[in-house]
Design a protein around this nucleic acid. Structure first.
Lengths: 339, 339
DNA sequence: TTGAAAGCGTTACCAG
DNA sequence: CTGGTAACGCTTTCAA
């Protein structure tokens, strides 16, 4: 299979290489006669453009990179990410882009790959998963010449274009719901507090209570890190410190699964003794016993929008920075009791 | 940021472009003096190779494609795939390859992307997820000139190189375990029977029974399609047709979750009344109540090996075809009762 | 060990 | 509307 080139087509069709290129790229100003003839030849001899050659000549790859920092250790275990990737992949297909995955398993990989990624010739743009405060990957990427958007609010690079979910309001609504169904002693299990997601959901919790004139009690706040086991221990801690505890807002479904476990072991009946609300509305929420009331976020839509924002920036430049915040929806199930 | 090229480095270092290329690519036969000087310059002016240019000149992209046929509808929902992808990504990083995702959401995309993918200039090799019998994507890919390996046993292209898990033995061991703990009336919920995975696990079931001289009873075989809901209905069917049912081998953890639901609704206690064994050992197995006995497969290792097989084929050609079968391990938990 | 030069397969500009 | 012809940035002979 000797690869068929533009020249082969040109020769066979009796036209110039430039003309074939125009036909392939659907330029105007090609006579219908020539166009259809060239297309016939292309079909006949099975021509396909050589992507690398095209990238070199046009200085565009039509490839985008999804970057996952090494601090994002749960990329492959949290059901959130496949959904996000799906959205991005959908939008890529839709807009004729190709998607490459850059998983920085180690800091060394970051060092090696980021310069290569931001140099050009590899990707036209980057979607990078937001990181905690201690990760400087974003600033490194922003120093390169390649357009990028951040998936999640970038605490340490607020001027970057990003897309986020309204975590504050999502949490606010969840906690408000708990007050509405009559809960008095509402605790929370937070996510990691070195990133916007965890911080924002905590803020939603405190604001909701403040708006009801309920004082914030430090004893009712226990820290988790988005893993199931952390949800378990944080909940045990809440139970130990608050005998009157009758509700917990847990900052992720995965942690909520751990919370349910802890409550069960403490012989607390959910929702009768303690109501539980999670966050994400991913499969674990439905599978839980009892099924979790939770805050649904439009993860796939999030991915699609991230990609569309990136394309916009690739085509129109990144000033001013774009900021998009998506809304959430409270999904009421068994774990928080009736109204 | 005017991109720094090889020529810039050459000029600044007072050597030829070819020499710089040799240094960058770590060729032998470069004097240590020149090498270190060039490296210094590279570091100084921040040179990074232009990937597209390199690909064009060398006819190698160092990029591989992970292809997901549109018939693989559960790529983003089954926890199996992130694990697989993780393994592949790890191996890519290890071997200095880059990973691109080709998710064929629609048949049209397949038609458009496959020729582009198999033409060269985009990827050096392809890992394609095995499909059912009715999908001809594999044969199309095999007709292109790009090396590929199949993840899973390709029913309709047995001469292709592939890597698989020993599903027959995995299922065999699970069912044998059920007989050992004294179960007499063992049913199975199968996966989709248009692919090797479902077929092989069913074969393991039948072989295990035959080896114990237990006749195969069609009433004890109910078909699912790897979704949770199908596990639920298939189990209901088993219960309706077999009053003595005291064990079920379910061909995936996800379906087993549905099976547990059906059993609970039928007031069957697991494992006392009915023992259950799943397959995969992914998070749902541990989260289930009771925790699932299941067949663990080395998914990440599977991904790593697939990539390594592909590299081998890229470098050494695909004759003879490679076939690798990985083993499994029975993980005993609460759902199948004590020994 | 090093340099010169010929590609690699496109795109895009400039004439005509 | 079409053809000729530079790039694009690198690798890879071939000579020296």
């Amino acid at each position: 299979m000797p690869n068929v080139t533009l020249d082969d087509v040109a020769e066979k069709a009796g036209v110039s290489r430039a003309t074939v290129s125009r036909v392939v790229n659907e330029y105007p100003h090609v006579s219908e006669k020539v166009r259809s003839h060239v297309l016939k030849i292309i079909d006949e001899i099975g021509y396909n453009p050589h992507i690398a050659a095209r990238s070199l000549a046009s200085q565009r790859t039509r490839n985008i990179g999804l970057v996952v920092p090494n601090s994002m250790h749960n990329f492959f275990t949290d059901p959130y990410f496949p959904r996000l990737t799906e959205g991005i992949a959908l939008a890529c297909n839709e807009h004729d882009y190709t998607l490459s995955l850059f998983i920085f398993h180690t800091p060394e990989l970051e060092k090696k790959l980021i310069p290569r990624l931001t140099r050009g010739g590899l990707v036209d743009g980057i979607i990078v998963q937001a990181t905690g405060l201690d990760d400087n990957i974003l600033s490194k990427i922003s120093q390169g010449g390649v357009p990028f958007v951040v998936a999640g609010r970038p605490l340490n690079l607020p001027n970057a274009s990003y897309i986020d979910v309204d975590n504050v309001t999502g949490a606010y609504n969840a906690v408000t719901h708990l007050t509405r169904v009559g809960r008095k002693c509402i605790g929370t299990v937070t996510g990691s507090l070195d990133g916007a997601v965890g911080l924002d959901r905590l803020e939603g919790y405190t604001r909701a209570l403040q708006d009801r004139n309920i004082p914030i009690d430090e004893q009712l706040i226990a820290n988790g890190d988005f893993t199931e086991i952390s949800g378990y221990y944080a909940t045990r801690q809440l139970l130990a410190n608050n005998t009157a505890l009758d509700a917990v807002f847990v900052a992720s479904d995965t942690m909520a699964t751990g919370a349910l476990q802890a409550l069960q072991e403490a012989s607390k009946v959910v929702p009768n003794d303690v109501a539980v609300i999670g966050y994400d509305d991913l499969p674990p929420a439905r599978l839980a016993k009892p099924a979790l009331t939770t805050v649904r976020q439009p993860v796939r839509r999030f991915g699609i929008n991230a990609m569309e924002m990136l394309i916009d920036i690739i085509e129109n430049g990144d000033t001013p920075p774009r900021h998009v915040i998506l809304g959430t929806e409270l999904v009421v199930r068994a774990s928080c009791g009736g109204v």
